[in-house]
Write a protein that binds this DNA or RNA. Sequence first.
DNA 1: TATGAATGAGTGTTCATTCAT
DNA 2: CATGAATGAACACTCATTCAT
Lengths: 195, 195, 195, 195
Amino acid sequence: MNRLLDKRTQIVEAALELFAQQGFDATTVPEIATRAEVGAGTIYRYFTSKEALLNALFQDKIGWLYEAFKRDFPHDSDMKSRWIHIIDRMHQMAKLDWDALQFIDTHYYVRLLDEQSIAIHNQLLEFVSQHIMAGQQAGVLKPMEPLLMISITFGAFLGIHKYRHGQRTGMPRDHEQLQSIARQCCWDLIAVHAE
Amino acid sequence: MNRLLDKRTQIVEAALELFAQQGFDATTVPEIATRAEVGAGTIYRYFTSKEALLNALFQDKIGWLYEAFKRDFPHDSDMKSRWIHIIDRMHQMAKLDWDALQFIDTHYYVRLLDEQSIAIHNQLLEFVSQHIMAGQQAGVLKPMEPLLMISITFGAFLGIHKYRHGQRTGMPRDHEQLQSIARQCCWDLIAVHAE
Amino acid sequence: MNRLLDKRTQIVEAALELFAQQGFDATTVPEIATRAEVGAGTIYRYFTSKEALLNALFQDKIGWLYEAFKRDFPHDSDMKSRWIHIIDRMHQMAKLDWDALQFIDTHYYVRLLDEQSIAIHNQLLEFVSQHIMAGQQAGVLKPMEPLLMISITFGAFLGIHKYRHGQRTGMPRDHEQLQSIARQCCWDLIAVHAE
Amino acid sequence: MNRLLDKRTQIVEAALELFAQQGFDATTVPEIATRAEVGAGTIYRYFTSKEALLNALFQDKIGWLYEAFKRDFPHDSDMKSRWIHIIDRMHQMAKLDWDALQFIDTHYYVRLLDEQSIAIHNQLLEFVSQHIMAGQQAGVLKPMEPLLMISITFGAFLGIHKYRHGQRTGMPRDHEQLQSIARQCCWDLIAVHAE
DNA sequence: TATGAATGAGTGTTCATTCAT
DNA sequence: CATGAATGAACACTCATTCAT
């Protein structure tokens, strides 16, 4: 059971790195096997296909993010605090598991996701949307579809970390500085500003 | 000569659509040939490889964007006007040639770009960076590396249009509304706000 | 066009030999390609799959046999002459294209045949059945389902040639002797004999 | 010891069904294991390979048929009675263990049989040949190589049962009717008929 | 110049066999 | 003894690229 989980974990982690860095199509199954230090056939004991592996991974990571959002969520605080909670959780994920976040970014719009993956993703969006709508009713957030607001914010947020991980020149900033930038920008982006 | 340009154009356009919609790896050369209404071999008369075609396309589109930025650039206006000029040009591209913008987004971080592509991309970044630095010195823009600021803004901007083109539910807004959202958000994102 | 037919023919012939001698499952596509002296990929320009190749082959050969039955068929002769016509045509095929006959034998009951293959096979059975029923009404053939009679006769007939081609010891007999055996046995098998 | 025989038997029976129904190549070892309700590895405790299992099975079944031929063989009766004894024994096997008979048919010409299998098969042929030669000397059987005669008869006989088991239309006849057909046809096939 | 038939290296996947438990 | 997780060679099939026409 221990070994079993081990192999599965090795496969999942290898696949995550490769999918995140090269994309699904550019990653070959033997490549995953080599990096996971298992035989190519072994992958098929745990996942019915390369595509199933993608979906398992996606659900895993979206699930992780969703849990992170909900854990210690400051339901009673003001909008800004709640929003910053969400940004901070994403920031945490970017720090601990950047591959996973990038993987979500590059694969969530894709033809390969199954119903299950889409469902869990929608749950996550729903959760965030609820809070956005509350903020809009309170007049502190700009009026626009919540999903659009999520899309913009996620884009901006990922921009920060793509920059950090890019081959781009310029010294990468430390995580705390980036966190403060993320908080500031992702709030300014959506908040209503006094003239 | 005219015909010749014709064929090249047909190929490039067919490739753009397919790369943007399915990604580079999921697109086959015969597929491009079919859509371009040329023989598969013909593509190799204009481009040495599928990868070379990608780079030609990339340079083409980055070049187009760069030209759009520079055309009628309001050098003497204030920072906000200059920034909105840039956002508007991107918005225009999103409207006229969304495939191209999406193509740039999904491929610019990629392993496949050659030196030339990177160079022209850097020129574009340099152009925008100049203005950002000026704005920062004037105290109207948040202090952070210009490239980081570009990365965030581009992410946010694309978030708007990805939302629009996604299968996501929610009625798609018309372009003018989106333009005003883009202007507002992409400015709030980077501007220094009074307390 | 000439070359084109050439390649297709080479593939079909190579596949026939191998399917007949080793069976469908034991034959690999590269093996067919090698024997046909074409690239493995070339096979897929002519047939959508290994299974499609099997069916094309099957229809080809059943069609050939059907045509052979019908050509110069002695409609006005007595039952025995008509039956011997059929046996002789099979004998001819066994002589000219034993692989094809064996291929039909080992594959006609199989899970791999498509509707088209089954349809053309049924046509052939129908043709022979008509004559059997006529013979039965005339009282010269044993009473039993025509399809059963065909199955017995085909089994017996193939027994002759399997013996000939087997690795079995015993000198193979010449074709004329076998033909006379085939005529005799396949007639005695089905005819009503005086007590 | 009892259990041990049990497992071996389970494996052999599972393999027989699958080989008979799908053929050797289309049957996987795990599939056999599942049907036999043993672990896949267990098969290799009883048989050195899939091929060895095939041969064990073949020898088993040929042995069974040989024993059936010899049991209560009417040595002192006339040729026809002796021949009908043989046909009846095959008929019995077709009734009790059709899989086995079909398995023999589809595999006895095959590349996979080892020396042992061929030897025992030859013993069976030898036994039948003896009687055929006696009948030929007595002038009641057609003159031809005994092995050829066996091959024809076996082909015809199996034709009867293949028809019965095929998806063919036409009501399947009951076993007693088929037995009388088998006796009649398989005798007419080889007997010398008065003009 | 333009073509598309031909290619074969490389893909995702299967399965006979092994071996640690 | 019995197992089944693990393996990797081999499979059917795809596709970027070439080249004779």
